[in-house]
Simulated assay, not measured.
Amino acid sequence: MLYELIAIVRPGSLKEVKEIAKNAGVQVLRSGGVVRGYTNWGTFTLPKPTTKHQARYSEGWHFIMRFDASGPVQAAVRRTLSLDPRMIRFSVVKLGDKLEEINDVPGNVNWNSTKMLLSDSLNLRGSFRSRDLNESTILGSPIRRTPS
C-alpha cells in the first residue's frame, strides 16, 4: 500500500528534520517497505498555535515522505513519531493499495502554486473573512454576501 506521511517538526535546525525523516525512512526500509521520496517544504506558520509536549508552537518545519509498506509498518511509523518530542503534528494518508492506482504517483510532492481563495470557490464577491462564519452559517443559513 502506498502512504504519504505529512509531518510538522518544531522549528529550529534542519539537522533535526533530517534525522526524523531518516529514522522514519529506515524504519520503513527495515520492514521491507520502499521509500518513494521526500519533499521538504520548509517552515510555515501553523493555522493556529499548537501546544505539544508542554511547548507552544506557532510555526513548524513541514516535510512529506511517500512510502510503500504494509499496514503494521505504517502503524509502527506512527507510533515512533508520536513518541518523538520534536514532532508537532503528523498525519499518514493512504494513497492507494492497487498497482493500477499507485503506479503513476511520483515520489516528490510539489507545492500548489495556484492560489484559490475560499470566496472564489463559493462564488462570493468582495472580501471573505473568517469572522463572517458564525454558528448560523455553519448550521445551514446562507453565507452573508458583501456588496461589491
Rank of each mutant, 00 (worst) to 15 (best):
A21H: 05
Y57C: 11
V93T: 12
L124H: 10
L2V: 04
K18P: 06
E19N: 10
T80L: 14
L139C: 02
R145T: 15
A76D: 05
F63K: 09
R125C: 09
G96V: 10
L95T: 01
E135L: 15
S121F: 11
S13R: 05
R125W: 08
N123R: 00
Y57R: 12
S127E: 08
K22H: 11
G32Q: 07
N23R: 13
M87E: 07
S58E: 01
V28R: 08
V92T: 13
S136V: 12
V77F: 02
H53S: 07
V73M: 06
K98E: 09
D120H: 00
I64K: 01
S82D: 08
K22L: 10
K48A: 13
F63A: 05
S136A: 13
R129C: 03
I6V: 14
R10C: 06
I88V: 15
P106K: 00
V77C: 10
L2R: 11
P49T: 15
G42M: 12
P49I: 12
N112T: 13
S141Q: 10
V34C: 12
H62W: 02
K18Q: 06
P11F: 02
L118M: 14
S113I: 14
R79K: 03
T45M: 11
L14Y: 09
P47V: 14
E16D: 14
L133P: 06
A21Q: 05
G25L: 10
E135V: 15
N123L: 00
M1K: 03
G126V: 13
V105K: 01
Y3V: 15
K22A: 09
A55M: 12
K52G: 09
R125T: 09
G140M: 06
T39I: 07
K98I: 06
N108W: 03
V92W: 07
F128L: 15
G32A: 01
L29E: 09
V105C: 02
S141M: 12
S148M: 01
D97N: 12
Y3R: 08
V77R: 03
P47D: 08
K52I: 09
S119C: 07
V34A: 03
L133M: 07
V73L: 11
N112F: 00
L46C: 08
E59M: 05
T50S: 02
L133I: 15
V17W: 07
A69I: 14
G25K: 03
P85F: 01
P106Y: 05
N123W: 05
S31N: 07
S70I: 13
I20Y: 01
N123I: 00
N23S: 00
M87N: 01
P11W: 11
S70R: 06
G140T: 14
R144M: 02
D68H: 11
Y57D: 00
F44S: 02
R56A: 12
A69E: 03
I88G: 00
S121E: 04
V28M: 02
G126L: 00
K52S: 05
P49W: 06
G140Y: 06
S91R: 15
W41K: 13
R10M: 05
